[in-house]
């Protein structure tokens, strides 16, 4: 019952976000600030993880190719498919649920605890629009992060494969181009877009409606991470079923 209530509250929050609008000049500044905090601030960790996971995928694939009849180009093929289809959009989004999601929940939750949200409401400002909409708009640039992750993941695979002596540079490039289906990129970015909306709104919901003090802010951050991850995984399954099956 409480899940149903929370789901209803979540959708009412979304409706509230698009209610009375904040002054455009103020909103623009907030959006740029959020892009800096949520997107630019995440590039470092995303790049680091993407590069090394790409490398690990290449090494593991190479070490499992015992049959000499299987071409070495498969290393690049496997790295490309796993990075584009799953690793970059989904795995990175789970990591972002921890990094960006916790940040959103704790910052909005702290504003709730310290009555800053009440202060906005008293002034006649739509606090949902002021706090959540800039985050949603900022997260629309999230596909760029995933594009960078895809590139670095494949580059990591190339570096590990070629420098580790598992595959030649030519074979890797050939494998990368083998059986390429452009729709897979469309699929990856469609789900990235949906994950971006989830990453902005679910943590905002947990922060905005939290009750209590500092301890509850911490609990809300944890709950937010768990629920964002769960919803991302379920959405991933549904989108995959709809677009690829």
């Amino acid at each position: 019952m409480s899940y149903l209530q929370s789901t209803g509250e979540y959708f009412l929050m979304i409706k509230g976000v698009f209610g009375r609008m904040t002054k455009r000049s103020v909103l623009t500044n907030l959006v740029f600030k959020e892009i800096d905090d949520l997107i630019i601030g995440s590039l470092g960790i995303v790049s680091f993880i993407s590069f090394f996971i790409g490398g690990v995928v290449a090494i593991q694939t190479a070490l499992n190719l015992n049959n000499p009849l299987i071409p070495r180009t498969l290393i690049a093929f496997a790295a490309r498919q796993s990075v584009i289809l799953e690793f970059a959009p989904t795995f990175i989004s789970i990591i972002m649920a921890g990094k960006v999601g916790s940040y959103i929940t704790s910052s909005i939750g702290t504003m709730r605890v310290t009555q800053q949200i009440d202060a906005l409401e008293v002034m006649g400002i739509n606090s949902l629009n002021y706090l959540v909409l800039p985050k949603i708009i900022a997260m629309l640039t999230y596909p760029f992060v995933i594009a960078i992750s895809m590139f670095l993941g494949i580059f990591g695979a190339y570096s590990a494969g070629v420098l580790g002596g598992f595959v030649s540079s030519q074979d890797f490039i050939r494998g990368l181009q083998e059986d390429f289906i452009a729709f897979h990129l469309v699929y990856a970015f469609v789900k990235t877009f949906l994950f971006a909306l989830l990453l902005a709104t679910i943590p905002s919901y947990h922060g905005y409606y939290m009750k209590g003090g500092a301890l509850e802010v911490g609990q809300a951050s944890t709950t937010s991470f768990v629920w964002t991850s769960v919803v991302i995984i379920i959405t991933n399954y549904i989108v995959t079923q709809l677009l690829l099956s």
Binding site: R20, T110, M111, Q115, Q116, D118, V122, M123, G124
Partner: peptide, 20 residues
């Protein structure tokens, strides 16, 4: 009108509620 009235209100919160 309710929003306009809110703009005519000033509020000092217990902890100040200043934006960090």
């Amino acid at each position: 009108e309710q929003r306009e009235l809110r703009r005519q209100m000033g509020m000092v919160f217990q902890g100040g509620a200043l934006f960090d």
